[in-house]
Design a protein around this nucleic acid. Structure first.
Lengths: 131, 131
DNA sequence: TATAACAATGTTATAATATAACATATTAAA
DNA sequence: TTTAATATGTTATATTATAACATTGTTATA
């Protein structure tokens, strides 16, 4: 059951399916408990699937929450430029897809001479409902 | 030993001193082991100090690494706009202090109507040495 | 100077997040 | 059809972080 580039293994599909149904970030152990009926019994199975899904861009990790969310770009295959808005009230997380922002950040250079190939940005505030 | 706004308590000073001496991000438990000689014996003592230091902006958390680094702005009292560059090779982390970038991001608005009051940005790449 | 209110500390235990290590199985390709 | 690579299953454990509660120190004020 090895996989060609771009194809998902059984466990990866199970985990991705579950994450896609939720439209909020999920914790790894909450995923684990919920996919146990599908046969994934132990943390490494979930974390391995998550690692791969993050790597190929199907899932993003919300670092400030240690939680995982499906990529909203239906055909996303990269994950090197991510931005999220996070409501401190209701905890709603939304992936920001803003060409100007991503262009600005992808082209950003500081004076260290370092060449960036990836970034992650998390905005915090209060959404309309929570204000 | 309560504290007025802006003053640091004993444990906060101990933890901040130690973090400032390192000029790299430190893990909470590594801090703990190293301040045990100063009397901080248990995780909550370190985490409480860290929480407060982060809150007042003296320390920032590098979310992708679960590590803590002293703020480079010597008089920083806020922590609502942070940006870091992280080398995937040597793991060196540098706080980015770029007025244009912070102005751009502080003013950023998306179409959700959400008003942001805080952001954290982490860039990844390879530094000069590691290229 | 009591005393109340609050902030900080100390302490034990445990929760939550994540990985090491190794055995087995599946697949693709040489 | 053997090999190499990938994926899976499994147990144990490492790492990160917080809950809960008792105690102590500080400030303000009655």
């Amino acid at each position: 059951m090895a996989q060609k580039q771009g194809y998902l293994s059984k466990n990866q599909k199970i985990v991705l399916d579950y994450i896609e149904k939720a439209n909020q970030p999920l914790k790894a152990y909450s995923i684990l408990f919920n996919v146990q009926k599908k046969g994934l019994k132990a943390p490494p199975q979930v974390y391995r699937a998550l690692d791969r899904l993050v790597e190929i861009g199907k899932v993003h990790k919300i670092e400030s929450k240690n939680a995982f969310v499906a990529c909203k770009n239906s055909n996303c295959t990269i994950s090197n430029a991510t931005a999220f808005s996070i409501c401190d009230g209701c905890e709603k997380v939304t992936e920001i897809s803003n060409p100007k922002l991503s262009k600005y950040l992808s082209g950003f250079q500081d004076n260290s001479g370092m060449k960036y190939n990836k970034y992650n940005l998390e905005f915090f505030g209060l959404c309309k409902k929570c204000r």
